[in-house]
């Protein structure tokens, strides 16, 4: 039953990704404008339905396990997809800008696909980890990652829009990509949000380790180091923007570099390095 729910979620996310990508692909063409509103509507509502289903799945899985489902790495990646969708929907709510979905929804779909393909429901979470500290720590960090993915999406949107303006003739035909100023500003705000969430997540994690679990703080942990490198990249980006006016194109590239760092921290460390954060 829970597997079926997850499969259903996976398929809805597939639809959401396809329709989001489609709407961006036909965005600049007049021939596409007949069906585009319909495609956009399907894309958006499948995202909403997919999000509801994913929330249901996580809630159900939580109930079945009796604790926040973060046992296996496949649980975490499903939660990651949930965080990506949540951040995206918040951005839509605040800005009415749905184009971002064309970039983040495929990412969310891939996350669910991986989670579904490798799902294993065998491992049990060690008792000392079963508490709300884990929830706060992981939720904050995954929401931060999701904000960084959104910033990455805005960076790509910026670069695409800039290319379009430099190509000149068709510069005005597309009304899907927001203006450079908007992509840049929203990307920056997502970065700031990500930095705040990640910092909070790290603080919660370290407090939890040191004071609650009474485990000595280890600097030499692959995930810890890698997280600090990621955080540093983003803080640097914010600083450069504030002090040297690094925005626009440079900020877009920085968002891409930052995203790669996030991927390294999240996937790379888990797969190839040993860490106390590794899921088993």
């Amino acid at each position: 039953m829970i597997n079926f729910l997850f499969l259903l979620t996976l398929l809805i996310y597939l639809a959401a990704s396809i329709f989001h990508t489609l709407s961006l692909a036909i965005g600049g063409r007049a021939e596409g404008s007949v069906i585009r509103p319909t495609i956009e509507r399907i894309a958006f509502w499948s995202t909403i339905v997919g999000f509801v289903f994913l929330t249901l799945f996580i809630a159900l899985w939580w109930l079945l396990q009796g604790h926040f489902p973060m046992t296996h790495w496949t649980d975490s990646i499903a939660f990651f997809a949930w965080a990506i969708t949540l951040i995206y929907l918040l951005i839509v709510r605040l800005t009415h800008l749905r184009t971002l979905g064309s970039f983040v929804m495929p990412a969310a779909f891939i996350a669910i696909l991986i989670s579904y393909s490798f799902a294993s429901h065998t491992a049990a979470l060690p008792k000392p980890l079963q508490n709300y500290w884990l929830l706060a720590h992981t939720a904050l960090i995954f929401l931060a990652y999701a904000a960084f993915i959104a910033a990455f999406g805005f960076g790509l949107m910026y670069l695409m829009a800039e290319r379009k303006i430099r190509k000149k003739a068709d510069a005005l035909l597309d009304n899907l990509l927001p203006s450079l100023g908007i992509s840049d500003e929203l990307g920056y705000r997502c970065t700031i949000l990500g930095v705040i969430l990640l910092t909070m997540g790290v603080i919660v994690g370290s407090l939890w380790t040191q004071y609650i679990r009474d485990v000595p703080w280890r600097w030499v942990d692959a995930k810890v180091i890698s997280t600090f490198v990621t955080l540093f990249i983003y803080v640097l980006q914010v600083g450069f923007r504030q002090f040297w006016g690094w925005h626009g194109r440079r900020a877009a590239y920085a968002a891409i570099v930052g995203f790669v760092a996030v991927l390294c921290t999240y996937v790379g460390v888990d797969l190839f390095l040993d860490s106390m954060h590794t899921y088993r």
Partner: peptide, 25 residues
């Protein structure tokens, strides 16, 4: 539902629209 009214059809309006694509406002 159609874009017949959008899109500048004079050079000076095209300049305004382009500026909006860059600066937003």
């Amino acid at each position: 539902e159609t874009t017949i009214t959008t899109g500048a059809v004079s050079i000076s309006y095209a300049a305004v629209e382009l500026a909006k694509k860059i600066f937003n406002t």
